[in-house]
Nucleic acid binder design. Sequence first.
DNA 1: ATAGATATAGTAAAATTTTACTATATAATT
DNA 2: AATTATATAGTAAAATTTTACTATATCTAT
Lengths: 171, 171
Amino acid sequence: MIDQELILLGLLRQSPKHGYEIKVKVRKILSLFAGVRLNSIYYPLKILEKKGLLAKCVVKKGKRPARLVYCLTPKGKGRFESLLNRNLLDFTRPQFTLDLSLYFLDFLKVSQARRRLEKRLEILEKISSGIKGMLISRELKRSLPLRRIMEHNLCLLRAEERFLKSLLKKI
Amino acid sequence: MIDQELILLGLLRQSPKHGYEIKVKVRKILSLFAGVRLNSIYYPLKILEKKGLLAKCVVKKGKRPARLVYCLTPKGKGRFESLLNRNLLDFTRPQFTLDLSLYFLDFLKVSQARRRLEKRLEILEKISSGIKGMLISRELKRSLPLRRIMEHNLCLLRAEERFLKSLLKKI
DNA sequence: ATAGATATAGTAAAATTTTACTATATAATT
DNA sequence: AATTATATAGTAAAATTTTACTATATCTAT
């Protein structure tokens, strides 16, 4: 839940937002690389508010009804930086679904395991080229951080492909 | 929570176990590569039992007091295979703590970002060599699946190192 | 002018996870 | 012989997340 906190504070660090805006941004962008368990964000927001890290302000714009906009407090800004710094030195290994499967692989018949792994490799390659496509798209041209993340992903996808190939040879 | 189910069923697929044995195995082995939120495992076990995937049997061995041993039912065994197969074709991208940091990196001063990234690289290299050490240790010699997982990890650590180096050049 | 999509802000109840314990038995150590 | 560590099996209460909704306003296309 540290990353949830970091996500929320970070999004508000970019700019004050109302709840729905946060939801959408998370769904469209952060879900690309962050664990999103933000089905309901109001509870976590309430907690952060209670901690004094953010504040609600009512904003009236145009003819729309008043909206609740969440913004960082100075304390929240400090907390964000500290979380970001901590996160940069966080080495909790990511969980690869593949690892769990590898651990139990011997419970499958070899032929079936092969077939599945080959299928996995095939799909991975499709995903790779999907990302390569994104990297030359207009959208990503505009966002440096997103581009970096996609490059990072591509890098790791390739590594998994290499790994799978070598595993398939050994089995 | 699919992986939690897979973990529990898989451990019981290896052999029937009592609760504490599961806890220990998870802490010592599975925590190396799987997300462990098994602080209390009895609730999940109860749910699986309710679903008819496993059964408790009381086992008396030696002078010890009776122990509750959980074992897979045939239904549970089927469910395990189906989950394992599904997991082999699961492509939810793992979450890299680094990605989240990259996304927000511009909120740090360039100099600070550099320092942190360099520090990260340094520690990553230590972790890599730690794993290289494990790979030639006796313990891992005995477990093929664990060795594979460690190789996989090493592969990906190296990829992250390469990525960080190239990022540091660009910043 | 109306239907349907989407923006907006939630809440209540159910399910699950986390935290912080309790309790006892055996094994290992001094 | 006493102490400590570890094996064993949990539970109760608190915190959090998920699910499944409610409601209204505005915008878009017909």
